[in-house]
Amino acid sequence: MSLVFSQLVNGLQLGSIYALVALGYSMVYGIILLLNFAHGDIIMVGAYTVYYSMTMFGFHPIVSVLLAIVISTLLGVTIEKVAYTPLRSAPRLSLLITAIGISFLLENGAQLLFGADTKSMNVLISGSVQIGSTNLSLAAIVTIAVSVVAMIILTILVQKTKLGKAMRAVSEDMGSAQLMGISLNRTISFTFAVGSALAGIGSVLYLCAYPQASPTMGSMLGLKAFVAAVLGGIGSIPGAMIGGFAIGLLEALASAVGLSTWKDAVVFSILIVVLIVKPTGILGRKITEKV
């Protein structure tokens, strides 16, 4: 029983990180129909930020964490302004290829600047909590709690605030939103900022579980978060949350039944199954092509 419980908590811990990253994918896709493959690499930059600010500059962990979130946000918005905005009216394929290019640029840039080796650091959160007969790591509890709070704030932001409503309006009908006086540039940048801030939080939470940074760490995490976004229904915010937790739990389940070496294969099989059975995902909206 306690094994099941601790695997469940592991799954939720991993899942909440996937969910935070998947949200960025889904929000950006929802607004400009771009699969932003550079999104995963923002996590890597966030992780290096924490590493260097703690080891080289000796900043307090909290300061480092905040710095990582700020830098991730700025990076996301900068990528959008420099690489994607000029392609606003270009074919979607050009945008997608650009996103892949940015991803390569970030990964290789990091390798050039920081070296190809893995940088290990001290654990950010240590200790454990005894619940019943089970020992739960404090890091897992903090991760789940932070993610849930971030998601609640995001939901309020999107549902209740003026900018959040503008975001939904742009994502539904860009032309009509412009006729309401909504600035596309501002709304799209805001979306990238929010998505990247969530990735920044995700990177910190990831470090709580695996305290190391490497140039390619973002790519596998990013891909799995992408699978989570597709599973939940790309473009859907609650879908990304559900998809993230589902993928995390499935991975934990796979490990629990002794398939831990196969867990990546399990995740990507889900992508294949979703694309065959229900390409719009769990909560995805129907694509209605306008004639």
Binding site: K165, R168, A169, E172, G175, S176
Partner: peptide, 8 residues
Amino acid sequence: GRRIFLQM
């Protein structure tokens, strides 16, 4: 074609 925000 009205173009209201159908999901809002």
